[in-house]
């Protein structure tokens, strides 16, 4: 029982990270139908920039804020330089551009930040907190809390605000959105900025637990993408639950079977779900008129 609780706690922590990455995917997908495979690099940049700003003498909260804003700016620039200029290209081409951007950002990060692992101190100490017989690191609460706050914020944004509705309208039909007076260029800028900022936040929150290096992005992007697909691409609720489920699956598998199999089992479960429900757990059925 204690064992299970322990696995669940660590699963939720990892899952919260996946959920944050998945939420980042959701925003850009909602605005543009593009699956942004550079999403993991935003996570890497968030952690890396915080580490270096902290080393340069900034207090952690300031360093974190700086990293999030700078990464958001990089996201906006990425959209301007690579995505907007290819506007009108098929979505598949745009997705391949994001893969290219991911490799490029990694290359630059390798040169700028070096190849070694970087660490960041925990925000509120390293003394484990006991819950019944299991323990959890204080930093885990930061990760879980961060995912919750971002989720609630996004959910309100997409369901309650006109700007959020404008993002959804743009994704549904860009021309129609323009016709009703939506500045679709601004919607894209906003989406990339927001998505990169959320990715960076995830990077800031997990770096004290997992450390960071120039190549952590790919694995996180893959897991976040899987989480988003599992929950249903485009739906914030799906991203949150998909990410958490993936984290739990991994941690339970690693605990009871072997950590060698954790990725395999997680992906097999995802495949099984997607066979039965191609739209994911909360995805909206696609209707396309020909």
């Amino acid at each position: 029982m204690t064992e299970l609780l322990q696995f669940l706690l660590s699963g939720i922590t990892v899952g919260a990270v996946y959920a944050l990455v998945a939420l980042g995917f959701t925003i850009i997908y909602n605005a543009s139908d593009v699956v942004n495979f550079a999403q993991g690099e935003f996570v890497m940049l968030g952690g890396m920039i915080t580490v270096f700003a902290y080393k340069a003498g900034l207090p952690i909260p300031v360093a974190a804020l700086f990293a999030i804003l700078l990464t958001a700016a990089i996201g906006v620039a990425f959209n301007r330089v690579a995505i907007e200029t290819a506007r009108g290209a098929p979505v598949v081409s745009l997705i391949i551009i994001t893969i290219g951007a991911s490799i490029f950002i990694q290359g630059v990060a390798q040169v700028v930040f070096g190849k070694e692992l970087h660490r960041l101190p925990s925000f509120s100490g390293d003394d484990p907190i006991r819950i019944l017989e299991a323990t959890i690191l204080p930093q885990s609460f930061w990760v879980i809390g961060g995912a919750m706050v971002v989720f609630v914020g996004l959910w309100l944004f997409f369901t309650r605000t006109l700007l959020g509705r404008a993002v959804l309208a743009t994704s549904n039909n860009r021309v129609a959105a323009q016709l009703v007076g939506i500045n679709t260029g601004f919607v894209m800028t906003l989406s990339f900025g927001l998505s990169a900022g959320i990715g960076a936040l995830a990077g800031v929150l997990i770096t004290p637990i997992t450390l960071t290096s120039y190549q952590v992005g790919i694995a996180l992007a893959l897991k976040g993408f899987a989480g988003a697909m599992l929950g249903g691409m485009g739906n914030p609720k799906g991203a949150l639950i998909g990410g958490l489920m993936l984290g739990l699956l991994e941690s339970v598998t690693a605990g009871y079977l072997s950590s060698q199999y954790k990725d395999a089992v997680a992906f097999v479960v995802i495949l099984a779900v997607l066979f039965a429900m191609p739209q994911g757990l909360f995805g909206r059925k696609a209707t396309e008129r020909v």
Partner: peptide
């Protein structure tokens, strides 16, 4: 841009329809 014209009171429809299908 079309969105600026829409804000100035010029509105249009398309021959091949531009509808928010998912709404």
């Amino acid at each position: 841009d079309p969105y600026l014209l829409a804000r100035r009171g010029l509105s249009r429809t398309f021959q091949n329809l531009q509808i928010f299908q998912a709404m």
